[in-house]
Amino acid sequence: MHSLLSRLNAIVAFSFTVLAGLTFLCFLTTFAKNYATDVRVRDLTGRVNIAYVNGLGEVEEAIITGDIEVDLSHLFDWNAKQLFVYLIAEYSTPAKPASQNQVVLWDRIIKRGENAKISQRKFSQEYRFLDDQKALKANSNVTLFLQWNVIPNAGALTNVRGIGSQSVGMPDSYTPLRSSKRA
């Protein structure tokens, strides 16, 4: 006969197998869901100046401001625990295409139950926008777009790019920034 411990082990192993199977089946219910939505990024203005950064030397620093409007509340279903939303600036240089020059300017974490409507006027950058190739001045195609990760309860992390982007042309001359001596 089997001992009590071996029977208990068989019951626990079977229970975990059933739970794993049910979790996978639940994940399949949201696997093909389209998490894309329309985003409005507008009224963009950009300024560029020379800044000194320890370890990099003289670099160009850009400040971009504008408005963001998006409603992400419909993205929350039973499997979405939270959203990690971030604004990306993408630009090309003579040495690299745009897909290799991406800078995160702003981000936000939205948990289930929180207000998922973002309506931010004149957003301020949270992170510095630096370029060591000095390719920002007079760059006419700096594109901003919103992207988010849907963090699930079960399954794969989904990375979604919002529908709609906006380009901003950088000025031809340097503009003094509020504080270009930040390290």
Rank of each mutant, 00 (worst) to 15 (best):
I68F: 01
L5H: 11
G66K: 10
G169R: 04
V12M: 15
M1Y: 13
I68R: 00
Y174C: 03
S140V: 04
L72A: 04
L28C: 07
Q133P: 01
Y86L: 11
R108C: 02
A98E: 14
T143F: 00
L75C: 09
Y174R: 03
Q166D: 04
W78H: 13
N115C: 02
K134A: 01
A154V: 14
L56Q: 10
T29I: 08
M170G: 01
F31K: 06
L8W: 10
V150A: 12
L130V: 01
W106C: 10
P152E: 09
Q100F: 13
L83T: 07
V104D: 02
R42P: 00
L8K: 12
L22R: 03
Q133G: 11
W106E: 12
I88D: 09
E90C: 06
S3F: 00
K117E: 11
L144C: 03
L177I: 06
D77M: 02
A80Q: 08
Y35D: 03
A138D: 15
A98R: 14
L87C: 04
V59C: 13
K111Y: 12
D67M: 05
T30R: 03
N149G: 07
I163G: 02
L4F: 13
K81N: 14
K33S: 06
N115H: 05
D77V: 06
G57D: 12
E60I: 01
F16Y: 13
A10F: 05
A116I: 01
T37E: 11
N115K: 11
P97N: 10
G113N: 00
T143G: 04
V104T: 10
S99Q: 15
W78R: 12
L130W: 08
M170K: 09
F24Q: 11
L22E: 05
G169Y: 00
R161Q: 14
E60M: 04
I68V: 03
N9Y: 06
L146K: 03
F84P: 00
K181W: 04
V103T: 07
I63P: 02
L72Y: 02
N101K: 15
V70P: 09
K81G: 07
S92M: 07
T158F: 12
A80F: 01
V18A: 00
V59E: 13
W78F: 15
